[in-house]
């Protein structure tokens, strides 16, 4: 079994077969993370670069650990420590690292479509670790993985995504992935943070959070970027928390065994109340572990095989 493309750029154009394969593979690999010796030799001699044009702790670390657990060599470039600050173009940076022999480039970039651009330039595999407001496919997959592990399925579940849908690549990847796997997805947030035509992606949109949460199996709360306030998209965090914040009272509308998710990092007391974030329904720390398993699966599926024909 092999993924259809050399790159993982988004869930919009990933088949359900490939998503299923990644989830199943992650299921098998998750056990390695809990071993005393967290290392398998599978990707010995493979070199993986994380190229981050935006600050990130968890995603970058998660990819790096995934690579190390599988014995790949991992190299990191962050904008502040590279020639990127001197104004080198993405093409030149990419070409430079490719001739150094990278097998895979994992990129985060503030501009939507940058990973598609990079994938056109490089022969190496490109993994999208978040591009602008477009997609964050590994986050989408790890959220799906977490739901599937807890609920045993995705099909038929009602998943509410709450918060800044407009600027969220996490929301888009979750919407594409979950709807393809047969879940019902609803989104909610202030109307200034819901993009036009969102319902054409196969979801229902609400401006009342209560309507979205009602009867939900899963409530996925998105991070609110506080600088959106300066752009006039909402008046204050106080009002946001009062009208759109996810708290105990609103979650009472969900199914009794609901899951509460957040991709992190959280603004406690703004988009999510602290007591529920740390409560029994929360999968927030589990998502982090699952993130490593999902990334190991993708690394294995893209780098684990090669092209010559000597199958036994």
């Amino acid at each position: 079994m092999r993924l259809a493309s050399k790159d993982v750029l988004g869930l919009q154009d990933m088949s359900t077969t490939d998503m299923q394969l990644i989830l199943d593979t992650a299921e098998s690999l998750k056990e390695i993370i809990s071993r005393p010796i967290k290392k398998v030799p599978t990707l010995r001699g493979k070199t993986v670069l994380t190229l981050f044009y935006e600050p990130s702790t968890r995603t970058r670390t998660s990819f790096e650990l995934a690579g190390k657990y599988m014995s790949a060599d991992t190299v990191n470039i962050a904008t502040t420590t590279s020639s990127v600050v001197k104004g080198e173009t993405l093409r030149d940076t990419a070409k430079t690292v490719e001739v150094m022999g990278m097998d895979m480039v994992i990129m985060r970039h503030p501009i939507s479509g940058s990973c598609h651009y990079l994938a056109k330039i490089l022969d190496a595999s490109v993994i999208n670790a978040g591009d602008g407001m477009h997609e964050h496919p590994t986050q989408g997959l790890l959220d799906m993985f977490t739901i599937r592990q807890r609920k045993g399925r995705l099909k038929g579940l009602r998943v509410a995504i709450v918060g800044d849908i407009y600027h969220s690549r996490v929301a888009r990847s979750n919407i594409w992935g979950l709807t393809k796997m047969g879940a019902e997805v609803v989104v909610a947030g202030p109307s200034t943070l819901i993009p036009p035509y969102i319902e054409e992606l196969g979801v229902k949109a609400y401006t009342r959070v209560e309507e979205a949460i009602e009867g939900a199996d899963v409530v996925n709360v998105l991070r609110l970027q506080l600088e959106r306030q300066q752009k006039g998209l909402f008046p204050s965090t106080r009002e946001y928390a009062r009208i759109f914040g996810v708290n105990q009272e609103r979650l009472a509308l969900a199914k009794v065994d609901y899951l509460l998710m957040h991709p992190g990092p959280m603004n406690r007391g703004v988009e999510i109340a602290s007591d529920v974030a740390d409560g029994e329904h929360s999968t927030i720390t589990e998502q982090v572990t699952n993130g490593v398993a999902i990334r190991m699966a993708i690394l294995y599926l893209l780098l684990g095989g090669a092209t010559d024909e000597t199958a036994d």
Binding site: M1, R2, L21, D24, T25, E27, S28, L29, E31, T42, Y300, L301, G304, G305, A306, T307, D308, E309, T310, A311, D312
Partner: peptide, 13 residues
């Protein structure tokens, strides 16, 4: 033989 195979075998637990 992973790197010489046309296809990755499915990983099981």
């Amino acid at each position: 033989d992973l790197t010489t195979r046309t296809d990755q075998p499915v990983v099981h637990r």
